[in-house]
């Protein structure tokens, strides 16, 4: 694995203290190759989301390190971590991704604003991104006026707004019907072709079957990447 975009070493995350201590991650080592489509699979409650949050710089590890695109996160303060989230990572979650009071376009513009893109350029970029996910005509629709699949496409457009090298997706299709899921997957395949690294938490075997790389999380530990395709 040459030049991994994400490199994780000895990652430990514990919650609580004493009797209530929960060891969510118990020493994870992991390299994610640049430009790969990696699926994280595993039972609920075994540390998938915790791993996602740490990879995305949303939380601080108890020990260990996460290095993303050459930056070691544990060395960053909250402000720099926020900037890293704005520029290096795009998040898509399963539910309620969008800011409900803003239109589709405004949601994308907000992400651009947070990365420091000037007001004028935001407009142009937001329109481009909406076209890219096939929602050019829904620019002024509020999330409530969009279907689940359309909302997720807006969320993807927003996640890639600042051209981050890494996309972190926490079951983005978990709530969609097959048709909407297919649309989302098509967009992701295009993004992969453009060189984006996509990390995708899923329960779906079909999606995992398309992955270059499968990371199985069980009991807070990463199991040796298995050849999911062959196993299934």
């Amino acid at each position: 694995m040459n030049n991994p975009v994400i490199s994780v070493k000895g990652l430990v995350k514990e919650y609580g203290q004493g009797a209530t201590l929960v060891k969510a991650l118990r020493g994870v080592d992991l390299d994610i190759p640049r430009g790969s489509f990696t699926c994280i699979i595993g039972p609920s409650g075994h540390g998938k989301s915790t791993l996602m949050h740490l990879l995305g710089g949303l939380d601080h590890p108890t020990s260990g390190s996460v290095c993303i695109d050459g930056q070691i996160m544990s060395q960053l303060n909250n402000k720099d971590l926020a900037e890293l989230r704005a520029k290096k990572i795009g998040f898509v979650f399963q539910f309620f991704n969008l800011l409900q009071s803003l239109t589709a376009k405004e949601n994308i513009e907000t992400a651009l604003m947070l990365a420091g893109v000037p007001d004028k350029e935001q407009d142009r970029r937001a329109n481009e991104l909406l076209e890219l996910v096939g929602l050019g005509e829904k620019a002024n629709a509020k999330p409530g006026q969009l279907s689940g699949g359309q909302q997720q496409r807006v969320a993807i457009a927003r996640a890639i707004a600042n051209n981050p090298p890494v996309l972190l997706m926490d079951e983005p299709t978990g709530n969609l019907d097959s048709e909407a899921e297919a649309e989302v997957m098509k967009i992701l395949e295009n993004l992969k072709r453009q060189g984006k690294t996509i990390i995708f938490v899923t329960h779906s075997h079909e999606i995992a079957a398309k992955a270059d790389n499968i990371v199985s999380v069980r009991d807070g530990q990463v199991q040796v990447p298995q050849e999911f395709k062959k196993a299934s």
């Binding site: 995305g56 949303l58 909250n78 402000k79 926020a82 900037e83 890293l84 989230r85 704005a86 520029k87 998040f91 979650f93 309620f96 991704n97 969008l98 800011l99 409900q100 907000t110 992400a111 947070l114 990365a115 927003r158 600042n162």
Partner: peptide, 16 residues
């Protein structure tokens, strides 16, 4: 609350 989280994921600082 959740929107605050989304804003943070999008890169908003605490100060912001």
């Amino acid at each position: 609350k959740r929107e605050i989280g989304i804003l943070q994921a999008m890169g908003a600082t605490r100060n912001g």
